[in-house]
Every structure is written in structure tokens, then in C-alpha cells.
């Protein structure tokens, strides 16, 4: 996952208590509620310049960090990748 993605995601997980975010990290378990999901979506738009399409806004997308990262990457498309987004 992209470092900036993880950095953007972290404040939305109040029960993370310093643990490392992995692809399997369950976002709801760590405190992402439906209000925060909207704020997170706006934050991803601001920090990564990516807008998740309406079709991606299902429960599954917000189930784990990996799912959200996959949806984010899909939305970024080829342009964002060639623009130098690094994977970690």
C-alpha cells in the first residue's frame, strides 16, 4: 500500500492504538463508521487526487485496508501510477 494512502487512512482508525496497518486490517473493527467513511473518501480525494466511483462505494470496499487500497488504485488508473505513486 502507498505510504500516503496509509497516512491518510490512519486518523480514521481510532482503535488502531499504534498497530501497523496491513492489507488485512479490518477497517470497521478499528473504528471506521459510516460518517467517517465519507470523511475518509474526501480525504483520499484531497491527498491522492482520487475519486472513488459510485460503484465502488459498497460495504466490501470499506471492509479492509487492502480492499480500499485496491479500489483507490483502480480509481487512480494508469495515469496516477506513471505519475510516480510508489507501492510499499
Amino acid at each position: 500500500m502507498d505510504a500516503r494512502f496509509v497516512e491518510t487512512l490512519t486518523p480514521f482508525l481510532p482503535f488502531l492504538h499504534g498497530e501497523t496497518i496491513t492489507e488485512d486490517t479490518p477497517l470497521r473493527t478499528y473504528g471506521l463508521d459510516s460518517m467517517q467513511a465519507i470523511e475518509l473518501m474526501f480525504a483520499l480525494e484531497d491527498s491522492l487526487g482520487v475519486s472513488l466511483p459510485d460503484e465502488a462505494l459498497v460495504e466490501e470496499t470499506f471492509a479492509t485496508a487492502g480492499n480500499l487500497w485496491a479500489a483507490t488504485r483502480a480509481a487512480q488508473g494508469a495515469d496516477a501510477v506513471t505519475a510516480g505513486t510508489e507501492s510499499v
Binding site: F15, R28, T29, Y30, G31
Partner: peptide
């Protein structure tokens, strides 16, 4: 849930 981290679990 047992040992849940948040009220949403």
C-alpha cells in the same frame, strides 16, 4: 463480539 475493539464490531 468477544474482545471487540470497537462498538461497531
Amino acid at each position: 463480539s468477544p474482545q471487540a475493539r470497537s462498538d461497531g464490531e
